[in-house]
Structure formats: C-alpha cells, structure tokens
C-alpha cells in the first residue's frame, strides 16, 4: 500500500513537472516555484537523517573499539563546528570561518592534491605501448600533456594546435557518442521511474 502511494506521487509529480516545462504561463511557473521550494525544505530535513546516522554508527563503533581515534575526531568535528556556528555565526571573520579556512580547507586541498600523485602513478602504469590502440592513446596523451605546459608552444607552434584539433574532433566525437548514449539511458531510466517500471529507488523491486 505505502509503495503504491509513493509510486502514485512519483507519477503525478513526474507528469506535472514534464507538462509545466513546456508551458510559459504564470500558473506553470508558480507550480514550478512551489515544488522547488518544497524540494529544498525536504532536503534540509534529510540532512538530519544523515547526521543521526553518522553519530549512531560512530558511537557504536567506538563501543566496539573499532578505529576509536578517527571516530572521536569525526564526532568532535560534528559537535564543535555547529556549536561554534550557533554561538558566533557563519559569516566572514567568525571563529567558524577561521576553522573553515585554516583547518577544513587546507585538509581538503591536501586530499585534492593527492590527485597529482595518483595521476603520475596511473600514467606510469597505464600508458604502455602494448598494442596499436594503446600506442595511439599514449601518443595522444603525450601531445596533450606537452600542449598544456609552456614547453609545448616553445618547441613548436603546431603542438598546441594539433592538441586542439585532437580535442575538438576525434576526442569530441567519441565523447559526444558516449554522451548521447548516457542521455538516452537517462531518458529511459527516468521514464521507467515515472511509469513505475523501475522501483529500486523505493528500496527494492517489489
């Protein structure tokens, strides 16, 4: 029964949002605006679900003596940041922002910077001339790498030009083909959801 209600709501809102997209009337715009406002309100409540989940899982794992230090740090972050935000606010030049700019941001930048190291190790391992196709990939990657560095233009003007050609034609057509496939996949998946053929998003197939 509850699943039928959810499916009916999904169908009605799917159809309403589809129809209103094609209408330029103020009624359609009002409907659109109201649904979007409710969407944002519902989203805010879902964060509570997430926070409760994080706290519960970490407390349970601390009781089981499982990665205690990491879990205490997580819980401390969950408690300290909102408390500081509630007391002093979250605008510029508040303790919350100080913590954001001097603790959270550098930590995140560090994780992002790992990408450079992983690109290096993946290139070292992955770009091997094992076959003709792999060699084409290897040569194209080398040309693009050169073109994005200052040296590409210094060695020869043709390197950045050729790299642009590769990005704009062979690479672009392949990506467009993949994008079209993805777009069609998204359309059919959305239709399956609206029509109730696809029900996994409700928590199962039944």
């Amino acid at each position: 029964m509850d699943r039928k209600v959810a499916l009916a709501i999904c169908f009605v809102f799917g159809v309403v949002m589809f129809i209103q997209y094609f209408s330029g009337s103020s009624l359609a715009r009002q409907v659109n605006q109201s649904i979007l406002e409710y969407w944002q309100i519902v989203f805010a409540f879902t964060l509570v679900v997430g926070i409760v989940g994080v706290v519960r899982t970490n407390v349970q794992r601390i009781n089981k003596r499982d990665d205690v230090f990491f879990r205490i740090v997580t819980l401390a972050g969950i408690i300290i940041m909102p408390v500081v935000a509630l007391i002093w606010g979250i605008k510029a030049d508040t303790p919350f922002m100080w913590m954001f700019e001097n603790i959270q941001a550098p930590m995140q930048a560090t994780v992002f910077a790992l990408l450079a190291f992983f690109v290096a190790s993946a290139s070292f391992r992955g770009f091997r001339a094992r076959s003709v196709q792999a060699t084409v990939l290897l040569v194209s990657a080398s040309i693009i790498l050169l073109s994005r560095s200052a040296l590409g233009g210094i060695l020869a003007d043709e390197i950045p030009q050729f790299a642009e050609w590769m990005r704009n034609y062979p690479s672009m057509s392949a990506r467009r083909a993949i994008l079209i496939g993805i777009g069609l996949g998204s359309i059919t998946t959305s239709l399956r959801v609206i029509l109730g053929i696809e029900r996994t998003w409700l928590g199962g197939r039944r």
């Binding site: 993949i178 994008l179 496939g181 993805i182 069609l184 996949g185 998204s186 059919t188 998946t189 239709l191 399956r192 053929i197 696809e198 996994t200 197939r205």
Partner: peptide, 23 residues
C-alpha cells in the same frame, strides 16, 4: 561500465521484460 552500460545493468541483471524493453 561506460555510461549507458550502467543504465542497462538493471535489465541485464534482473532480466525484467519491461526494463529490457526500455533498453
């Protein structure tokens, strides 16, 4: 799985007739 192969997974794994039809 390249793009649409992921979308086809539902039909591929479940062999559900309607989902296969949409693929």
């Amino acid at each position: 799985l390249i793009g649409e192969e992921l979308f086809a997974a539902s039909g591929y794994l479940s062999q559900d007739e309607s989902i296969l039809a949409s693929v």
